[in-house]
Design a binder for these strands. Sequence first.
RNA 1: GGGUGAGUAGCUCAGUUGGUUAGAGCGCGCGGUUCACAUCCGCGAGGUCAGGGGUUCAAGUCCCUUCUCACCCACCA
Length: 893
Amino acid sequence: MAHSTRRGELARSYNPDAVESHWYDWWDAQGYFTPRVDSDRPPFVIVMPPPNVTGELHMGHALFVTVEDILARWHRMLGDPTLWLPGADHAGIAGQWVVEKEIAAEGFSRHDLGRDLFLERVWSWMDRYRGRIREQLRILGASCDWSRFTFTMDPEPSRAVRTAFKRLYDRGLIYRGERMINWCPRCMTALSDLEVNYDEVHGHIWLLRYPLADGDGFVEVATTRPETMLGDTAVAVHPGDERYTGLIGRMARLPLMDRPIPIVADEAVDPEFGSGAVKVTPAHDPNDFEIAQRNGLPSINILNNDGTLNENAGAFAGQSIQEARRNVVMQLERHGFLVRVDEHVHSVGHCDRCGTVVEPLISLQWFADMAPLAAPAIEVARNGTVQFMPERFKGIYLHWMENVHDWCLSRQLWWGHRIPVWTCSACGEVMATAEETLERCERCGSTEVTQDPDVLDTWFSSGLWPFSTLGWPDDTEDLRYFFPGSVMETGYDIIFLWVARMIFMGIEFMGEAPFSTVYFHGTVRDEAGQRMSKTKGNVLDPTRITADYGSDALRFTLITAGAPGADLKLGMQRVEANRNFVNKIWNATRYVLRAIEGAEVATDGDGSVAAPSAGQTLPDRWILSRLSALNADVTQLLEAFQFGEAGRRLYEFLWSEYCDWYIEATKVALNSGDAAAQAAARQTLAYVLERSLRLLHPVMPYVTEELWQHLPHAGDSIMVAPWPTADSAARDERVDREFVFLMDTVRTIRNARAEAGVEPARWISAVVLPGTHLDTLRESEGVLRFLARIGADRLELRANDSSAPQQVITLVVDDAVVYLPLAGLVDLDTERARLRGEIDQVEEEIARASGLLANENFVARAPAEVVERHRERLTAAQERVALLQSRLGELGG
RNA sequence: GGGUGAGUAGCUCAGUUGGUUAGAGCGCGCGGUUCACAUCCGCGAGGUCAGGGGUUCAAGUCCCUUCUCACCCACCA
């Protein structure tokens, strides 16, 4: 498909629908998303955080797509072989959960189906949604390499998971043990610490009285969970607590269970809290578990996996925790063991996925030994091998890593990577393997081997993602070339769950961190600052917004609405404003196309619009100078990950400088009879627009491509056009200054016209004493007249010494004076008052500047250029005030 | 209990390394059918940068402190 300059008129306004899908399909078909391996050039690599295959894309996805796509497109234009690797995640518990809900609606449970049938259901669900994720990423414009799309449950990443497990197991870094873990009674699985959310709840604290077994008296203990007393195996006090020294070593009698339990001493008890004595339930409290270990206490598990009480709970067996709590309290009260109940606020853990209250309990699970894995992962953050953006997240990461606990890896689920551990029932050998199945025991050869029924935490495979997607454990070309990656871009909410795991897994298996920079984006919230959630019903669907306003407008909004690492509130009025910006660029292009229609536009050897070489007027030179500054700024901002600032800078340039001033100014040159000026204006219009579109392309891929195709250009697509380099020769401070003078003059006259109530359409006269701006005013007289609406032959440039006319408004711009003879509209008193107001303002400025300059310290210590700037400012202000005052004098003020 | 972020115009937010007179969008007021754009154009009003103290020639920006809000971490019986 050849794409030379597109012909035909552009519509009067931008319609994203007509443009977006066309270009995306074409880019994809052209193969632009797939990088070419070039051993002479280091690649730029981003591995996409794989969206969960559990539902629709939300705004968080739209945000990460925007940021990563900006980086990918920018680097591609820089000429870096750019790989942005997409994927999808099977999402462990969340994945199983959605399918369980689906079959529950049909009246089944997963157990009714059995493991194999259930997994078939999950797979068909996944296949259905996988395509949807792809579709939505495409709508957002994601320029990722679909040929490398990977799903975490695909055979290759699955083999990587088994391999990683086996290697860690063989190194002794994975072990199985009975430990206190978090148990979700609804999901019926163990959870890692990170999958538990603690929420403050208003509950109660019960003060109980346990009688001493060997004599009179009681010991009082406080608890927020009275039902756990059924599993108590001791009472603990602080060894230094004088109130209890006599009790240590004696026995208490556990109420309701009628069980003797020892009173032990342990440092972990806070004598200040409650009664200073603690009931010890080793099986259901992490603290108590440790106390029990130190004191050799037994532990009694009173819970079934579904959260009901088991036979160890005696009469309460079979009851739910809530029922048991009521009944236990009732019984305790009836028998006089309840001292009192107080209101109490404490935090309770809930399952991250289903919200059920999590039960701490002892269970046989697989764990990763974190200490050896964490040490080098701490080092790469400390020594800067991995950079954090914004940097404050480094501290958060380090704090977690330095205090990390062993990681509970096993989940009692069916959906996920099955733990590759097999047990021989003949000889009892336990073996890990990287193979999918194990036929016979490695020790005795028996075929009586069975695989562990559990699956791995979904984040285990996520930790391997930066290299499992590139072919690891095989030594592939992709792995050699694209690893380690460049930037990891993700949300700060998964810094521990994911980022930390990728870092230590990368170091463990690849010998180095899997990326050199990790950039965090914030959470997208609704207009009220609330987290978006389905239950709140405040979710803004990115595809809806895209359909209504276009992907470009949404993308631009997402990056300019916030700052790196900061949450952002998404308001529709902002999206609309940015849709208007897209439309503005669209119409600017319409103007340019009309201007160059039928005329020659010079191109470089490669076919792209050439910079103008002759005949430039002041506005031409000014916009070229501004473009050069823009180019340098945008490049620097992207390098610093300041995407929002880059976007705002482009907005400001295109709308306020290019459209509001430059395009308006070209209307004068284009309507003049000066062929050279016309040619320069056309050339400059096209050149600046074409370069700006390239600078804008990473942020707004669609509209920039569409418009670029209408302009003379080199190459097939803007997405593979080179990133422009700033033409430093075009920078001209004198030109900038003179054009600013021109703008100030226009603004000042417009302001005076508006204040005096001059009809906008009316052409007026002006007399100008040019001060030092004679050349500028001579050259740009036409521009000044056009923009300030001064009639032909009604602008008079006069020598500075001429006396002021009567019945005029006097304006001072820099060292120039403008008289507007507005017969009938000028009131002498009003004019005097206006001049006095001006003088007051300028005098304030003089006071500030001269104050600064009178300060010896300032003059001595501030940089010379700052001092110089203030000197100039003072001089200019003094001139202004002199001019204003003399005029006021003439008016008898 | 520790930690982080935020507090800037009526609203929503920018302001990366301290450097002229603090910006934008929306909203508001006044005025506009000029042949790119009413999804627009022109002009304007509006801020003690949460409070207090400090460092500095210079502070929205750095330090200390207080208040308010949000979030994170922690084995708060």
